[in-house]
Design a protein around this nucleic acid. Sequence first.
RNA 1: GGGCGCGUAGCUCAAUGGUAGAGCAGUGGCCUUUUAAGCCAUUGGUUCAGAGUUCGAUCCUCUGCGCGCUCACCA
Length: 535
Amino acid sequence: MNHGPTSRVGLFLSGGSMLEEEFSELEMNRLEKARRLRAEGLEPYPILSERDTSSQEAIAAFEAAEVAGSAEPVEVTLAGRIRAIRNMGKLSFAHIEDGSGKVQLFFRVDELGQEQLDAFARNFDLGDFIEARGTMFRTRRGEVTLQVSAFKMLAKALLALPADKDEQFNGVTVRHSVLTDPETRYRQRYVDLAVNPQVRETFKLRAKTVRALQEFLDGEGFIEVETPILQPIYGGAAARPFTTYHNQLKQQLYLRISFELYLKRLIAGGMERVYEIGRDFRNEGVSFKHNPEFTQLEFYMAYADYHKVMDLVERMVSFTAQKVAGTQKLKFRGHELDLTPPWRRLSIRDGLLEQLGLDIYELDSFDKLAAWMDAKGMKYDPAAPWGKLVSQLQEEYLEPKLIQPTFLCDYPRDVSPLAKQVPGKPQMTERFEIFVAGMELGNAFSELNDPMEQEQRFLEMGREYTEKDEEHHPMDEDYLRALAYGMPPTGGFGMGVDRLVMLLTNNASIREVILFPHLRESGSGAAEADAPEAQ
RNA sequence: GGGCGCGUAGCUCAAUGGUAGAGCAGUGGCCUUUUAAGCCAUUGGUUCAGAGUUCGAUCCUCUGCGCGCUCACCA
């Protein structure tokens, strides 16, 4: 059934492999070549490579010598994966690819002898790793090429990569086939990376994104820290956690759903500006913007409120876009986005006024708002608090309209248990979320630092969730103690790094920016029959 | 978890209620001392799995598995 390559990685060359019987003719062919090499005293998987430069460096060195009029030959040893072979009897051409790009190899009979030339044609296939020594030259067609004086196998590929031959038709490059099946691409990311250069590029940009965020925050005086992933009490977000267990301590533990409560302990301890970039885990559904484990950035700055956080965040994201994409203007999901600060700042109240003509400051109780929704024929949970109804309206009627980067401000207290109230508006809190292209990118607030008020919020939240019997939020007494020792006024912020990378690389799905996104365990029969788990 | 869609050769895709085809890749041959992304021939399929309807199923029905989109969930 599933004859994907994963199933046969465990086999070896010495024969006797049970899995060998499942080899296709094509694969048997390659295995025979590997065995033949070994029989001839040539190791198909040698330890050492003598490579001394990359393909693009070699080309650059040759071109520099050319310009300088140097007669000195450029001698190099290159290594890479064979991507194309053209055997022509008395000469052969090949293209190899390394981390820097592609370069052509030229095998010539009067340089290597017929025996060597035949050995290349007989033993080497697309996908093999080869090392080749020689001098660089320019062919009649003008392509800078390595004329090979010696070569050896570095690693024989037993499985064929998906074919991706390019052909020119009237000057247009046609790619005959590439690996596009999403399942194969995610499950066998190594094949995807080997065959799809833009995938490698995406993950280079992802690394650059994280570096840029660090560079920016470091420059603003933040200290990068690491806090526990295994937590006895989870918190800081409303999400179902993954649970695990420490055997020796006989202790139930949770994988963190946010960093928030630990980072604010650090602020209470006198670290004025801290951030963490790391993995969060939420036991929830998956979608184009949700993966059960995802990379989160959170920072906290003492003596700041959410307005100061907004100022910093728009500069941070704009800085990162410039570093990574080289521009503030991005194409994403059919939109033209402009990240140039300042971003729009819109309160939920004003937004709902604009979209629905609804003033939540007038309809400031559950009964009033519910009556209004009844009149409009809208459905809602009759057990929900007022703030939940506001959230529902905001999600349905407001968020999808927020295409250009927007700070959506001032959230109901009911749904913001860790945020400070807006002065004079006790049912609202100083909180904002960032929306870009209708997608939530970040979440922030003026952090609640009144321990007595925080305790009340925990209690209310605990009641609410206990009644629903779905999520139970235990009181985090140690966190309350930290607040009781005193935490300065603090602005905090959290952002999904994967989603930022989606924006910066114009990838519509979070799976495109996570190397190994979570997929359902693959089919029972295939997994059991194929996986050589004998241990 | 619900709805919709998809699953055919190594890869990308066709086709049909009468037993499956193309391009690329593979194999063999031609040929060639700075190109060939060439020419000729050829191998390769449990049409995701199981059951049902039918004289006959890859196609129709059901179930299962997997993937995608979407909804729900996700302050």
